[in-house]
Amino acid sequence: MPVPLLVPALIGLAFLLLPLIALLVRAPWRSLPEQLTSAEVWEALRLSLVCATAATGLSLVVGVPLAWLLARTRFPGRGLVRALVTLPLVLPPVVGGVALLLAFGRNGVIGQWLDSWFGITLPFTTTGVVLAETFVAMPFLVISVEGTLRAADPRYEEAATTLGASRFTAFRRVTLPLIAPGIAAGAVLAWARALGEFGATITFAGNFPGRTQTMPLAVYLALQNDPAAAIALSLVLLAVSIAVLAALRDRWMTAS
């Protein structure tokens, strides 16, 4: 093996692994059970899981049809729409949070009507957390599902049509089952992204324990006054991440 490739490769590997090892080395293993059973940790974990799952569900409901629209139909400006859909992938999440505030905030473009007509307030609520996470995570799902749809043979839909299926029935009974693995992978990816979401959440939903304080927010707060708790919370998130990787291993880790 050529040394000029091997050495940087090993440095890169070490750079990625060392922080995780440090996390394990410095973990307060003795006080860990106590840390993890505290009410705040459970509250933050429960909120994180609920919000990430809700955000994934919301992403599925609107994201799969959006992916279908991008993959299977032609309309003017489709390339632009596709670029806009992927924008949150590269947008700094804090900017996303600010944008969400301007749209759905109490004085936002849409938020002011929601407030005056329906009395609905989104920012600094649990619903706000779900919206912020959906905004950041949905593009992952859309891109994943769109890719799977493009790879799937559209002639199956034609075959279904000749058997009397409407376009929607063909999608529901033929295409959807065919692309189910891609949808599952996209959903897991979106869920993991939502679980780790920090910037957009803290900007749009704030940091209220039990209401909008998710795990990443709790970790950040704990690091300032109780580092041991921060490490414990981080370990939990690390475990969840490893579980996600394990769930996706068939799809990516074998793609050598």
Partner: peptide
């Protein structure tokens, strides 16, 4: 009714 060249039987 159509019989397609590669049949296009729904694999699932």
């Amino acid at each position: 009714g159509v019989v397609f060249q590669d049949y296009l039987l729904f694999p699932h």
